[in-house]
Design a protein around this nucleic acid. Structure first.
Length: 501
RNA sequence: GGGCCGUUAGCUCAGUGGUAGAGCACCGCCCUUUUAAGGCGGGUGUCGCUGGUUCGAGCCCAGCACGGCUCACCA
């Protein structure tokens, strides 16, 4: 049922597009280079607006500040022989003032061959209007680019969610807060890199195309390499490659890049998403918890200047230490199941099937996970480490000493979302092989989401993986938290959409 | 995949079975410190698509497409 992309029939221009095209033609006939390649400027709109915002009317007059500023026209107010308009660099607006007696009748008339959306450069001096608004008094204006389509409405901006994602550039032009979200996301990633670089972690890049998809429980995307005749999978996690590097002596590594999971979409899921994974030799999951607290509190201090995060009207306090609850105890507290019953695999599976028959939680561990997702996770608003998941659903994690059914693992939950997942890595190659084989058994029983036996990885373990703590952090979700956005698509520039028919 | 809601002008949206609407944008005219500038004049449309009911459908019905929210899967 695959759909082939078909060339779209070109849409007939609207009246407004015709008007713009003919203005462009007129400018060309007049010998104006509407799309020049070189441009000089003294400030961006944002720079000028922030630099001179505090200057008084008198100071500006006295200092005679000359500027040359490029920007996109967002509004025009013509009053006969004088015109005000606003220029934007997508972040900030700056007013410009054009007078016929200053620029001359020819250029003044030519200005009206511009449209809202065109990119212009304004050269002149700064002043403040009667109402105190910083404004460039233009001596000349130069065309930098023509906008051949009308922009969305100036007051409401672009609201249509589908259009906002498909034409993200329009979203950015019309809705400055969108740019702020992505500036924040970029700052977040930079700060994460600084954090790990400072601690002696090496940033690495491991394959995105895997012969065996591993390191997570998820359905992969398939692809094919022609020359090798090789079926490959887009990676669902970098985990197994990163741990091979630790075997090789790169004791601290991290990677920030895309994972691909062939699953449905939701406000918390995009099929390609960005994951931070890091591994530290001679550390365990307790060290990972400390590092995680440190990382996220520092990010909040640096990016938000705060000890808490406001998300969806709730205050998430980052005051350390964060709550730590045991997985089983959390399930017991919220699921309404007697603690005694929780130890009984049959009772748990029965309960999970009653509550979520569609999940097919046939094993003890999976059933517990169902109960956790349904009853516990949504209630964990404050940052909470959930500890010691069932070993059965943690095939890459070390077992807890003396507790055969638990793993040395934690998930960090904030605002009801899983933000991070970490464990003391399983380092015993024989044990790892057994866990893989057990997964293969589940697979034969019809469970699609199992780890595939990766013999090459087991071989790597056989050379000796030192005790290692490892963790994955969902960058998109972290960005949602920091930018206070309710949907993952608000923090991904181009979220996956069905191609337009 | 299920449920709910939506799709009308470039954009944001009204629209009650009987001539297709508003604001912004656009076009013409006036206006030299305006700022959602203002004043006068102009509607620019395949009402998502295909059928049906009806004398008559943007409106009622069916199917389809696309989107949003939500549930399910997943991190």
């Amino acid at each position: 049922m695959g759909k082939k992309p078909e060339p779209k029939a070109e849409r007939k221009p609207t009246d407004q597009e015709d008007v713009r095209a003919s203005k462009l033609e007129e400018l060309r006939k007049a010998g104006v280079d509407v799309f020049p390649s070189r441009v000089s400027r003294t400030h961006s709109v944002h720079e000028a607006a922030t630099l001179f915002a505090g200057w008084s009317k008198e100071e500006l007059e006295e200092k005679n500040v000359r500027v040359e500023i490029p920007g996109r026209i967002l509004s025009v107010r013509r009053m006969g022989r004088a015109t005000f308009f606003h220029l934007s660099d997508g972040r900030t607006r700056l007013q410009a003032y054009l007078r016929e007696d200053v620029v001359g009748p020819e250029l003044y008339e030519r200005f009206f061959l511009t449209d809202i959306g065109d990119i212009l450069s304004v050269k002149g001096t700064l002043f403040k209007t009667k109402t105190g608004e910083l404004t460039v008094k233009a001596e000349t204006v130069a065309f930098l680019a023509k906008c051949l389509h009308p922009l969305p409405e100036k007051w409401h901006g672009l609201q249509d969610v589908e259009l906002r994602f498909r034409k993200r550039y329009l979203d950015l032009i019309m809705n400055p807060e969108v740019g702020e979200v992505f500036r924040l996301r970029s700052a977040l990633v930079s700060a994460i890199r600084r954090f790990f670089d400072e601690r002696g972690f090496l940033e690495v890049e491991t394959p995105m195309m895997h012969p065996i998809p591993g390191g997570a429980l998820a359905r992969p995307f398939k692809t094919f390499h022609n020359a090798l005749g090789l079926e490959l999978y887009l990676r669902i996690a970098p985990e197994l490659y990163l741990k091979r590097l630790v075997v090789g002596g790169l004791e601290r590594v991290y990677e920030i890049n895309r994972n691909f999971r062939n699953e449905g979409l939701s406000s918390e899921h995009n099929p390609e998403f960005t994951m931070l994974e890091f591994y530290q030799a001679y550390a365990d999951h307790h060290d990972m918890m400390d590092l995680t607290e440190e990382l996220i509190t520092r990010l909040a201090r640096e990016l938000l200047g705060a000890e808490d995060i406001r998300y969806g009207g709730e205050a998430l306090s980052l005051k350390r230490p964060w709550a730590r609850v045991k997985f089983l105890e959390a399930v017991a507290a919220h699921s309404g199941l007697e603690p005694a019953l929780l130890k009984d695999p049959k009772a748990v599976v029965r309960r999970a099937e009653e509550l979520a028959p569609e999940k097919k939680a046939v094993t003890y561990g999976k059933a517990l996970d169902v109960l956790f997702d349904k009853f516990v996770k949504p209630k964990l608003i404050q940052p909470t480490f959930v500890l010691n998941h069932p070993r059965e659903i943690s095939p890459l994690a070390k077992g807890s000493p003396g507790k055969p059914e638990e793993a040395e693992r934690f998930e960090l939950v904030m605002a009801g979302m899983e933000i991070a997942n970490a464990f003391s890595e399983l380092t015993d190659p024989r044990e790892q092989r057994l866990r893989f084989e057990q997964q293969a058994g589940d697979r034969e029983r019809g469970d699609e989401e199992t780890h595939v036996l990766d013999l090459d990885y087991v071989t790597a373990l056989e050379y000796g993986l030192p005790p290692t703590g490892g963790e994955g952090v969902g960058i998109d979700r972290l960005a949602m938290l920091f930018a206070d956005r309710p949907s993952i698509r608000e923090v991904i520039l181009f979220p996956l959409l069905r191609p337009k028919a």
